[in-house]
């Protein structure tokens, strides 16, 4: 499964409680669409660290890196994670 799909599946299952792929677009903002609150954002960071073996630095915890499936995928790419 691609990195993008693993992220999408995680968000769909754990925050939208569905397997329906059409419920989450790759560029949908988690914050603007009220999919994640601040606790949810921390949980996502835990997930990324556990699942992909990376460490997210404090200064990296910004919406530019974390606020959509595509942004997370690009962020992981920069960290050297590829499918």
């Amino acid at each position: 499964m691609s990195v993008e799909n693993r992220i999408r599946e995680y968000i769909l299952e754990n925050y939208l409680f569905t397997n329906d792929q059409s419920m989450l677009g790759s560029d949908d903002s988690f914050l603007q669409k009220n999919i994640l609150d601040s606790t949810g954002m921390l949980e996502v960071i835990y997930f990324l660290e556990d699942e992909f073996g990376i460490k997210v630095q404090d200064e990296e915890m910004v919406p530019e890196n974390l606020d959509s499936v595509n942004r997370i995928a690009a962020f992981l790419g920069k960290k050297g994670v590829t499918a």
Binding site: L31, Q32, N34, D37, S38, M41, M61, V62, P63, L66, D67
Partner: peptide, 12 residues
């Protein structure tokens, strides 16, 4: 101090 928290405050 973080944009993320600011966005959260705005939305909540």
């Amino acid at each position: 101090s973080k944009d993320q928290a600011q966005g959260y405050l705005q939305s909540f």
